[in-house]
């Protein structure tokens, strides 16, 4: 039950983040919004990291540099997310994002790219994507 609540909150926060970034962008600009929200988030995460005394960060060295650089994508994610919300609204944006996310993840998985365990795409995944696209069509037309 607690797990369900956490997952539910997680989803709520992700959407709220997009909406808040859109609101802030209206007032101060999109790159400004992306810069400030990530700076304050970074400071908070750093404080928590020091507080929990997790020494595992030293193992950064064991991770491939490409994977360490993933965080930099967030700049483009935030910009694209805000621009999309301004143009087509939150529901449509989130729907299209989720479809793109699931499709790309499955392409990566089925090819075993980035060291993922190669796996076959099964029928339920096709049906799932089909339903999601159908839902977006219903939403819009």
């Amino acid at each position: 039950m607690k797990g369900i609540l956490f997952a539910f909150l997680g989803g709520a926060f992700i959407t709220l983040q997009g909406v808040a970034n859109t609101r802030i962008s209206q007032d101060i600009g999109t790159w400004q919004a992306a810069t400030i929200t990530q700076l304050t988030g970074f400071i908070m995460a750093l404080v928590i990291l020091i507080f929990v005394r997790d020494r595992k960060w030293k193992r950064f060295k064991q991770v491939k540099p490409l994977y360490l650089a993933g965080g930099a994508f967030a700049a483009i994610v935030i910009f694209s997310n805000v621009t999309a919300i301004q143009r087509i609204g939150v529901t449509f944006t989130v729907s299209a994002m989720l479809i793109a996310q699931l499709v790309l993840t499955y392409i990566i998985d089925s090819n075993g790219w980035f060291g993922t365990i190669k796996q076959k795409i099964k029928l339920p995944q096709f049906i799932g994507i089909g339903l999601m696209i159908a839902g977006v069509v219903i939403l819009r037309f």
């Binding site: 993933g70 994508f73 997310n81 087509i88």
Partner: peptide
């Protein structure tokens, strides 16, 4: 708008793996 959503979703997918 749709194009930007797809860019965002694709990058989120990569970012999650990384």
């Amino acid at each position: 708008g749709l194009l930007f959503s797809i860019i965002a979703g694709s990058l989120v997918s990569l970012q999650n793996i990384f």
